[in-house]
Each structure stands twice: as C-alpha cells, then as structure tokens.
Design a protein around this nucleic acid. Structure first.
Lengths: 226, 226
DNA sequence: GCCTTGAGTAAACGAACGTTCACTGAAAGC
DNA sequence: GCTTTCAGTGAACGTTCGTTTACTCAAGGC
C-alpha cells in the first residue's frame, strides 16, 4: 500500500515509525501528552490559552484534528488537564523544599532562589497558571484557584510542622499563606517576563520579591489574634 | 460552536435617526466607545480578550466589520485603548479616596469597602485589568503593568503626603505599595467572581482582604531600613 | 489464528473569520 | 450652493475553524 502523504516532521511519535516503542496504551498517553505540550508551547509564544484553536493544538502535537477527540471532549477539558499537571508542578515545589530543608539563616532569600529556579525550570506550567488564573474561561480559572488554595493550605501545614510562627492561629496562618501565594504567582509573571541576560533587572526583581515577603513575615510575627 | 449574541439596539446610535444628536467628530468618538464597550461586554460574559474576534466586537457595537478599521488598526490597538481607559478608572479610585479623606479609625476596613464598591461599579474595567495582566498578548500585559506601576507610585506619594509611615524610605514605601496593589487586584478577581446574594461569602472575602492588608501594614510599621 | 478494538487518518461540511474594495450620503469647508 | 471629506455600508475573497464521517490497520483478547 502506497502512502501519498509526506511523512510528518515529528517522526518520534509517528506510529508507523515508532511502532515498536510502546504498547497501545502507552502510545495513547504519549499522544495525549503531546497535545498538552503543544498547547503549552503555543502559549509560550505569548498566546492566551483561550485564543488557541483546536486545529493549532493538533498541528503542534503532530496529529490530525479528528484525533483530538480520542483524548479530550474539547479544549476546556484539555485546559483542565493542564491545570492538574501544573498543580502537580506547583506541589513539587513544596516537596522539594521540604526534602532539602531550609536553613534558618537567610531563609527567605534562599526560598526565593529555589522558587525562581523552579519557575524557570517549569516555565510553561507557571506561564499557564499565571496567565489563566485571572482571565480565560471561568471553569479553568476556578480550577486554578482551587489548586492555589490547596497549595496555600499545604504551605500552612508545613509551617506548622516546622514550628514557624507558633503564635498564629490556623486561620491566620492560612490567611498569611494565601497572601504569600498571591505574591509568589505575581512574581512568577515578572520572572517569566524578564529579558534574558539582564542581571541588573534580575537582581532588582529578586530583591523586591524578598523584601515583600520579609515585610509580610515581619507583619506575621507581630500579629496578635484577638 | 454557535454563539447567540444579542445585537445592540441600533436606534440609539443609528446616524439616520440620531442625525441631529451630535457633530461628526462626536459621533465618531461614540462609535469608537461602542466598540470598546462591546469588547468589554463580551469579556463580561466570561471570555478572555484574546479570544474575541473582530467581527464579534463590531457585532456587539452595532456596526459592520469594515467600520472597525476607521478606529483601530487591529484588536491589539483596541486593547491598548482599553488599558488606558481602565487605568483612568483605577486612578479615579485614588482621587476619590483623596477627596473624601479617610478617617484614621478603622481606616483599612473603610478603604476596602470603598475599593469593593469601586470594583463593582466598574466591573468590566477591573475584569479587563485582572484578566489581561497575567495572560493575553504581551503588549497589552506590559501596558497594564505600567499602569499598575504608576498607580503604586501615586499611592506611595499620597501616603507620603498624608504622613503615613514616615519612617519608611521612599524605596520601601514603593515596594509596600507594589505589594498592596498586587493584593488589591487579586482581591478584585475574587470580588468579581462572587456569586450574587451570598452575604456570608462576601463577608468572608472582605474580612480576609482586610486582614491581609492589616498584616502588610503591620509589617510596614515594624520595618526598619538598614 | 481469527476477531475485536480503537488510535489515528483523510476528506468533507458549513460557519466564522480578517481584510479589501468600491460605494453612499450627510457633515464640514469654502 | 458646490465640493470635499470620511464614517459607515455591503459584498466579496481566501483562510481557518470545529465537527462528523467512513476508513485503515496494528495491538490485544480469546
């Protein structure tokens, strides 16, 4: 049987070539992942998720438009999958910090450094979160808010476990972490917008971020529940 | 996907009927305003600006697609006009607060109340700002960041003039206001997402917002520049 | 080994899109 | 009053869109 179609550029995932690389289920998961990556890549070029078309996404993923429906009902469903994936990335930040432990000296600055690296290492996930948390489809926005909320709660729990700010009630601790998360995500947008190779701007941004957090924690340590 | 869009009532601005209502220049400005309002209204239905089509916007404004080009080169240019308009709305908040004066007792809570009313009274502008500051076209995002920055600087200036937190350096005051603005805009999204007629949720949100600001200002009053 | 399953394909559809063009006709300029 | 200007029109164009359809053909079940 002759093939009239020029082979697709993305040979790595062409089933005709990659036939023996994986089981059927694994290949399906891989295509699904390619669809999600394709959407993220398009967003990485300065596009909002809600401006993407289904055909664009399938094109970026190297499949035909109709294939999309084998994996998602529509773009919103893909968006929700991206929320979940990005939420996992967010959580991994806490897990890494927890595992490494944080020295009490210069703790804030160190945490900000870790965070900055994490954001840069998972650029597209943070771009997605920061971009869709405000605008975009309500269903996606709400899912992101839920992820954020869980993240803040987990952070509060960690602080409790570490014995930080023992004077604060759980409610206040949670409020504090909500504020910290907002500040973090705002900083993520700024980190991602940084022009490359501008150490001056970079230092300024990090310094400002550190100071904001220092201010917040200074307030927290002076806080008295009544 | 089919979308049912209710066409704007043409009669109010139909030149054939409204012929005597204004000069040519005034009517041009009115159409321009209708285009901007049309875009905002569509966003008010849960759409991101970058997902709007030129034809949709003209439909909502009650003009033919080709008319669009008499006012804007493309949708980005309309977006930048919306940034400017929304920035003016943002500034008006400061002006109003300045004019009314703020009582020193329960100042934070009062300010939050004023802010909440302002956000609700200019729902679409805040929706636009909060929605496009993170995602969307880079050119628009940057313009919003610039507006925010000016707003924060103006706020710092006002605080200086009022003699609040006299111990802080200008730089620190500016950093503080940046943090406050971030927190405000985040709260705007939450205010706008509130389900109607839910006083319980509303109080919770306002309380949380007030506490976050209180924490921040508590930190500011304990801050020592070195 | 045959049969079923289902991920991915190719083609087609009507709808919506951005943009252009020549036009109309009231307002503004003279 | 005659002429010029220009905001808005209506039609047309080539694209791209989302979705459906019948299909192919390995993988996996029996």
């Amino acid at each position: 049987m002759t093939r009239l179609v020029v082979p697709r550029a993305k040979t790595a995932l062409n089933p005709i070539i990659a036939v023996d690389l994986a089981s059927r289920g694994e290949r399906k998961l891989r295509t699904r992942a390619h669809l999600m990556e394709g959407a993220l890549e398009l967003m990485g070029q300065g596009r909002g998720f809600s401006s993407l078309s289904l055909r664009e996404v399938t094109r970026a993923a190297g499949v035909v438009p109709a294939s999309f429906y084998r994996h998602f009902r529509d773009l919103d469903e893909l968006g929700l999958a991206l929320v979940e994936e990005s939420g996992a990335t967010l959580r991994r930040l806490l897990r890494d910090v927890r595992r490494d432990g944080i020295p009490l000296t210069d703790m804030l600055r160190k945490s900000v450094q870790i965070y900055k690296h994490h954001v840069e290492a998972h650029r597209l996930h943070f771009l997605f979160i920061a971009g869709e948390r405000g605008g975009g489809a309500p269903v996606i926005r709400k899912a992101i808010r839920t992820e954020e909320s869980h993240f803040a709660s987990e952070m509060a729990q960690d602080m409790r476990a570490l014995g930080l700010l023992p004077g604060l009630s759980s409610e206040t601790l949670r409020m504090l972490c909500g504020l910290v998360v907002t500040t973090m995500i705002n900083a993520a947008t700024e980190i991602l917008d940084l022009p490359r190779q501008q150490p001056r701007l970079e230092k300024e941004l990090v310094d400002n971020f550190v100071r904001q957090l220092r201010l917040v924690f200074l307030g927290a340590s002076a806080w008295r529940d009544r």
